[in-house]
Structures are given as C-alpha cells and as structure tokens.
Design a protein around this nucleic acid. Structure first.
Lengths: 183, 183
DNA sequence: GGCGATTTTGAGCGGACGCTCAAGATGGAC
DNA sequence: GTCCATCTTGAGCGTCCGCTCAAAATCGCC
C-alpha cells in the first residue's frame, strides 16, 4: 500500500492531462490514448493507478465543482446570490467540463453509477439552495424552500444547456433574472 | 428517381424499427446492426435509402416532436398553457426520445449539424411561446415576451433534465408551477 | 418478354477504443 | 547491498460500430 514518489507524481500527471483534455475538447477528446500520450505514460501504468477511464474523469469533474464552492466548509454562510454566482462561474469558466458533467448524467446507468452520483450531488445542492433561501426569508417552510430550490436549479440547468448550444446567449443575465423571479 | 413499392415499404420498416429501438433503449440501443436486424434488411439496403444512421434518427425525433404540436397549422391559436402542456406530454410520452434529442444536441458539432438544427428548432419554439404570451397579455413588448419565453423554456428544459435523472420527480407539477411564476 | 432502373444481398473493410498482462526497471526500507 | 513492493513498458487482444461495393435479384413500363 505504501506509495512511492514516482507513482504519486505519475498520478498527478494523468489527472492534469485529463483535465486539460476535457477542458479543450470534452469527453470526445479525452480518450485513453490521448490521456496517456499527454501524461507520457503507457496504458498499463494508467491502469496500475486507476480502475477505469471513467474514474479519472469523475475525479476531475468533482474537483472542478468543488473549486467554485462559495462555502466549502459548509458553515451555512452562503446566500442564494452566492450560490447562483458560483453556479454561473462554474459554467462560464469550465464550459466543456460542464458539458461532460451533463453528458455523463445522460448516459445509461453503468457499473460506476454516474447517474446516481449526479442525482446525489444535485440533491445536496438543492439542500444548500433551500437552506440559503430560508436564511434569506424566515417565513419560508422547509418544504416550500425545497420546491423553490428545485425550480431555481431546474431553470439554471436549462439556461446553462441553452448557453452550451449557443455561446451568444446571455446566460449570466438570464440566470440572475431567473433567480429573481423564482425566489 | 421513380420509387418502387418495395423500396417505400422497406424505408417504412427501417423508420419503424428505429423508432421502437429508440423508445426502448435510446441511442445506445439503436445501432445500425440492431436497426437492420429488426427491419429485416442488410446494411447495404439501409444505405441505399438513407445517407447515414443519423439521418433516420433525426427523422424519427422530428416526427415525434411534430406529433405533439398543439397547433400544427401554425394558425396562431395556441395558448401558453397549450404549449406547456404539449411540452410536458412529449417528455412524458417519449422519455427516451427526449433523452436522444438532448444527447445529440450535446454532441460535438458534426457534418450533419445536429446542434445547429437543435438551436433553430429552439428558436422557433421561443417564437411560438413569445407569440402566445403576447396574445395572453397585450401589454407585453415583443422583446420582453421573447425574454420571458427563453426563461420559461429554459426552466422547462432544466426540469425535464431533472426528471430524466429521477423518474420520481414530479415533472409536470414543477413545469406548471414554473409556467405560472415565469409568465 | 425485353430491358433499364431500382432494390437487395453477402462479405468485408477500417478504425477507434477500453483494457490486459507478463516481464523488466526502479525505489526504498532494512 | 539485498530484497520485496511498487511502478513501467511493449505488445497486443477483443469488441463494437458505421459504412462500402460489386454482383445478383426484382420490379414494372413498353
């Protein structure tokens, strides 16, 4: 189990290669061959460190999402506005990664359970939004806040999708407007 | 150019086979081999009638969308409510087809221009929604109606996506609630 | 029944992709 | 310096998939 330095550095190179490939050309560009090529590693070495290609992709996506979290400590200090801004930032800074994220969720459920993961992540996010909404409006019931959070997140997801079709779409403006109308 | 009866019937069989395969298992199930097998046709015959696999998939999706149009003649008699209901109906009756529709739009732009097609279809739909909204509220400016239509369609798309992750999600309820809040 | 156009078939091409494994190279604890 | 665990490599396996094409069969108009 004790890791060697070499292995740790190789793992980092693989993750970096995957991240840059995904950012440049999405899932289509991040083939195993491309990842290994860019990381300067043979496939066998890759599989010594990761269980599958999906594993490293999931890791990169997760890290990117965590990186824009406005309240990583979960201290309960983020406002709805913060959360919406974080959402917008993720999509604007990592459009290809966002596409990967959605794409994997739409794939048929495989052994890795990407769809289930995605759903769990969404549910946690709904809770965060609902909590922030209640903090901003103390008359809101928990149920009602959850419903509103689902609505707002639904709208944000849809607008982000719209933007991925056409980068001329004023995503951030629409997103903020949706936030105003739905909370 | 004069078609023979045999060719016309074969074409219909291929379309039917594609439709049922897509409905059962989405894009993943509708491989060329599966389509040809179910249509009882060899691949060469398929390519005598269609330019590519994508061509028949696009045709099936388009036909399904047209089939739920509340105002196929474009007479301008449909209300916002009608359009929202039609949207809900499409997703509830053809969940797999809806997934295919979204999936192809998220794919990188190929020679067939699926993404562009998708965008054009979306824009036409925004216009339909905007027109219906103005019919329901004559004080609405054209620009403002378009913005509202984009918002509402964005929300519907996002909620439909949410529902595709988890069929327990009360899609129709949320969709109607979004329509109320956003128009 | 002849004949040109259309349709069907059988066989197979070419390539992408994820992944495996035995054997050798390297690291580092003792 | 030995020795075992960890890491790396090279070669290649198996599969799936969209698509092609020459030749044979069929259609239907005259």
């Amino acid at each position: 189990m004790a890791r060697y330095e070499a292995g740790i550095r190789t793992e980092a190179r693989i993750v970096d290669a995957t991240r840059s490939l995904l950012a440049e050309g999405g899932l289509e560009a991040a083939t195993l061959a491309a990842i290994c090529d860019r990381a300067d590693v043979k496939a066998g070495s890759f599989y010594n460190l990761f269980d599958s290609k999906e594993a490293v992709v999931l890791r990169v996506v997760r890290e990117a999402i965590d990186a824009v979290d406005p309240d990583p400590e979960q201290a309960g200090t983020d406002t709805t506005q913060d959360l919406v801004d974080a959402y917008i930032r993720f999509f604007e800074e990592q459009p290809e990664l966002a596409r990967v994220y959605v794409l994997t969720a739409l794939q048929v459920e495989g052994a890795n359970g990407a769809r289930r993961r995605f759903l769990r992540h969404h549910e946690r996010r709904v809770e965060r939004f609902a909590d922030a909404m209640r903090r901003g409006d103390s008359t809101l019931s928990t149920d009602e806040a959850t419903v509103q959070a689902e609505l707002l997140l639904g709208a944000l997801d849809g607008l982000a999708f719209r933007w991925s079709l056409d980068k001329a779409f004023a995503f951030a403006d629409y997103a903020r407007r949706a936030a105003k109308a739905l909370s």
